[in-house]
Each structure stands twice: as C-alpha cells, then as structure tokens.
Design a protein around this nucleic acid. Structure first.
Lengths: 191, 191
DNA sequence: CTAATTAGTCAACAAGCGTTGACAAAAGGA
DNA sequence: TCCTTTTGTCAACGCTTGTTGACTAATTAG
C-alpha cells in the first residue's frame, strides 16, 4: 500500500472540490460567516463529507489559510528599485493568474479569528522581516518592516477586501509609482 | 409627556450599560463573534432587555457603529504640514481620551459584515473625500483620497486590529514623521 | 463472482443563536 | 392608599450551527 503520489485519480476530486469551495467562501465572507453546509453545497457534496475528509471546520480552515509570499531576494535587486519591485510583486500576488488564494482568506478572517491573526503575524515575522533585513541596514528592521506592512496591507484591505471604489479604480501604474515611492522610502530607511 | 432632555436619570443607565458593553465587545471581536447574551452578561442585565431597548442586534450595532472623523478644514492648514496634521489627527482619533469608539468596531466588522463595510465607504466618500478636496487641486481627488485611505487604514489595521508587534511598538513621533511624509505626498498630489 | 474496502447518504444530536411573550417587581402619581 | 406605568425576569420558541453514527452504494481485490 504505497501512499506515494501514484494513483493520481480516485475521489480526491471530492477533497479538491471541498478545498476549492472553502477557499472561495472563506475569501468572500470570512471564517465566521462561512458554514460547513455552505461549503458542501458549493462543492455539491454532503456536509458530512467535509468533516470526514478534514476533521473539522477549523482544520479545513487551517489547511486552506496558508500561503507563501514568495518574496524575492532584495539583496539582488537594484537598490533604487526596491519599492517598485515590491509593489509589483505584491500586486501580482493578488491579481492575475498566479494569485495566492490564501491572502484574502487571511485578511478577511484575521479581524475576528485569532488563529488567522496569528498566522498573519507569523507571515510577517517569518517572511516580511527577513526579506526587509536584506534591503537596508541591520538597524530598524522591525520599524521599516512595520511601515511597509502598514502600507501594503492597507492597500490590500481597501482594494480587495473593503473594495473602496477609488482604490479599486487605481490603475496598476499609478499604484506602482505612488505606493512604490513610499515603500522605497520605508524599506530602505532613507528619509 | 415632554420627551425633552429633562429627567436625566431613570434607567437609561441600563441603556448606557448595554451600549458600553456592546461597544467593547464589537470592538474586540467584531459583529459575528459578539452575541446578544455576551453583551447582556457584560452589562449585567437580562438578554431580553437588549432586544427590548434596541429592537435587534442589528439595530444595536448600527447605533454603536457610527462615528465622525472630525477632520479639520485642510484649507486652513499650512500647506506644507497637511500630512503631519492629518496623521496627528488620526492618531488622536484612535488613542487617548477622546478616541472614537466606533472606529475599531467598523474596522473589525467590515470584513464580514456588509452593513459595516457600507458605512465605512460612506465615511470615506462623505468625510475623507471632501476634506481632501480642499487640500490639493480639484483634479485626482478620488485618487489622492484613495491613496491616503490605503495608508491610514493600513496603519490602523496593523496597529489597533491585527496588533502587529512592530507596528504597535512604533512611537507616535516615528509615525508622524514617516507616515506624515507619505500622507503629505498623497494628499497634495505633489510629485 | 464474491468479498472487502472505500465513498457517499441520511437523519439526528446537542449546543448555541436571536428573539418573543407572559408574568412579577418596582416606581410614581392620584 | 390604590392604580398605572415602567423595568426587569424567566422560560421557551424556532432556527442554524458543527458534528456524529448507522446505513447503503460503489468500487476494487482476490
């Protein structure tokens, strides 16, 4: 009974359907508003299967609410283009083909779900801080990373979660120029 | 039966206790997580009274989730100090004595409660946009207001809701200097 | 083909939710 | 004092939630 990656097809299609439905609903309505029955209905399966395959609603959420920012090595980026680079990367994480599904899920749920909030803080200390440590001096890393996060999370919050019309309507170019300049200053610590 | 402001004391102390408890709990856990029974327990009254006095949980939330940013007239502020001024004002709205209780309530609930999200958007178009219209040219008001909001809401989200340690630890002075410079650029549309 | 394993169905559970209405206590004016 | 209005209490309602276990159907192995 090799549990290896052989036998690609069985009804893990069910598992996949559950995951897909859960991602969509958690991202749209957050953890509390999304019910196991909603997920099952969207996946066109029985609610009991959600529990059978994932143990509980919490475990399913934990499974789905993981993501990797895939931040580039800022030590290898042209020093004067770090801000632009980060903003471009950030937008591509949220929009287009390779968008990371876990991000809207976390942002929507972190306000009322302590598990999600902790995961977001971990992403910060495990991914954002280390990346920023390679972008400027060793000093004030936390301060610089905090400022960067406040701007980028705020942008995501307004644009993708709250959907504030003027922020939704901002073009990629405007964001890259205006916000990029801010991130450049925060990230490098230059005044 | 004059319904005027006479007779200051009866048991509107109950009403006040309910409002106070509701503000605290909505601000800490958001709309969905907060139950009528929780509010009643904190106010040390019967759950039925919450409904009696406020009609429903939704009406109580609507009552409590209102706020006025009290933005200053930016036309009367030294043009080069608009950013600093706005950030100072923003911090005072969140911290200290006269902090507005409705703000954390809204921010926590807007991610999963459409009523709260709409109210936030109304605050934006009814208070932030008009104020910014007096800070720069008539053009790009929406763009500038959107950028300002993305930074200030992001700051509030990280510092007061998510409580990201590096952002919580930022001193007022650092925030006023670093974020103030950003807001200055966004608000005036310079560069 | 038969037997065993896997996948899916169904009804129900205990707990929690917002909300209601019938009733008792307290307060205040006549 | 009595009577009316205000305040508060209590139990219960109908509904939804996450979760469970017994059962059937489908798939696979020998």
């Amino acid at each position: 009974m090799p549990r290896e990656s052989k036998k690609p097809t069985k009804s893990d299609r069910t598992r996949a359907a559950i995951v897909t439905a859960a991602q969509k609903l958690f991202a749209e309505q957050g953890y509390e508003r999304t019910t196991v029955r909603d997920i099952a209905a969207l996946a066109e399966i029985d609610p009991a299967l959600v529990i059978r395959y994932f143990g509980s609603k919490d475990e399913l959420f934990a499974r789905v609410a993981v993501f990797d920012l895939k931040l580039p090595d800022l030590g290898k980026v042209d020093r004067s283009k770090i801000g632009e680079n980060l903003v471009r990367h950030f937008l591509s994480m949220w929009e287009g083909e390779n968008a990371i599904g876990g991000m809207p899920i976390m942002l929507r749920s972190a306000t009322s779900n302590e598990v999600a909030a902790n995961k977001l803080r971990e992403v910060f200390s495990g991914q954002v801080m280390p990346a920023l440590a390679r972008a400027g001096g060793r000093e004030n890393v936390a301060e610089r990373a905090g400022l960067v996060s406040s701007q980028l999370l705020g942008l995501a919050f307004c644009r993708y979660v709250l959907k504030l019309p003027p922020v939704v309507n901002l073009s990629r170019e405007v964001i890259i120029r205006a916000v990029g300049k801010t991130i450049q200053r925060y990230a490098t610590g230059e005044d």
